[in-house]
Lab assay of single mutants.
Amino acid sequence: MIINNLKLIREKKKISQSELAALLESSRQTINGIEKNKYNPSLQLALKIAYYLNTPLEDIFQWQ
């Protein structure tokens, strides 16, 4: 199971779900699903999230 700190990191950087979704060329619903652990992002999307949040991938997503 993958757990994530996306919501915590996103809020700390003062970025809304909609703003992050626009940067990622994704939907706000996708970001919401990832944050609620209802959806696991593809590797490509996970890497883009890490890039746009300027945060190491392993700080956002962790195996448990």
Score class of each variant (00 low, 15 high):
Ser26Ile: 15
Leu6Val: 04
Tyr51His: 12
Leu8Thr: 15
Ser16Glu: 04
Tyr39Phe: 14
Tyr51Cys: 14
Leu43Asn: 06
Ile31Gln: 01
Lys14Asp: 09
Glu11Asn: 08
Leu47Met: 13
Lys14Pro: 01
Gln17Asp: 03
Leu23Arg: 09
Lys12Glu: 13
Lys48Leu: 08
Tyr52Cys: 13
Ser16Gly: 07
Ile49Cys: 03
Ala46Leu: 04
Lys12Ser: 14
Ala21Ile: 05
Ala21Arg: 03
Ala21Cys: 05
Tyr52Lys: 05
Gln29Lys: 13
Ile2Trp: 10
Lys14Glu: 08
Tyr52Ser: 07
Leu24Pro: 01
Pro56Ile: 04
Ala21Gly: 05
Glu11Leu: 11
Arg28Asp: 11
Ser16Arg: 06
Asn4Asp: 05
Ser27Glu: 08
Met1Cys: 12
Ser27Asp: 15
Glu25His: 15
Asn5Gly: 02
Leu24Arg: 00
Ile49Tyr: 00
Thr30Trp: 09
Leu20Trp: 03
Asn54Tyr: 06
Asn32Glu: 15
Leu20Val: 01
Glu35Cys: 05
Thr55Cys: 08
Leu47Cys: 15
Ile34Ser: 02
Lys13Met: 14
Pro41Gln: 02
Lys36Ile: 11
Gly33Ile: 08
Trp63Ser: 02
Ser16Ile: 05
Glu35Trp: 02
Glu25Gly: 15
Leu24Thr: 15
Lys36Gly: 10
Leu6Pro: 00
Glu58Tyr: 13
Gln17Thr: 07
Ala21Phe: 00
Ser18Gln: 13
Leu57Ala: 02
Ile3Gln: 10
Glu58Thr: 09
Thr55Met: 07
Ser26Lys: 10
Leu24Phe: 02
Leu47Asn: 10
Ala21Asn: 01
Ala21Gln: 02
Asn32Phe: 05
Lys14Met: 10
Thr55Ser: 08
Asn40Gly: 11
Lys7Gly: 06
Leu20Phe: 05
Thr30Gln: 10
Tyr39Gln: 10
Gln17Ser: 05
Gln62Pro: 08
Ile2Asn: 07
Ile9Tyr: 09
Leu6Asp: 02
Glu25Asn: 15
Gln17Lys: 07
Lys48Tyr: 05
Ile15Leu: 12
Lys48Asp: 06
Met1Ser: 04
Lys36Ser: 14
Asn4Val: 08
Ser18Gly: 13
Gln44Met: 09
Asp59His: 12
Glu35Asp: 01
Ser42Arg: 05
Ile3His: 08
Leu24Ser: 10
Leu47Tyr: 10
Asn37Glu: 06
Leu53Asn: 00
Ile31Gly: 01
Lys48Cys: 08
Ala50Lys: 01
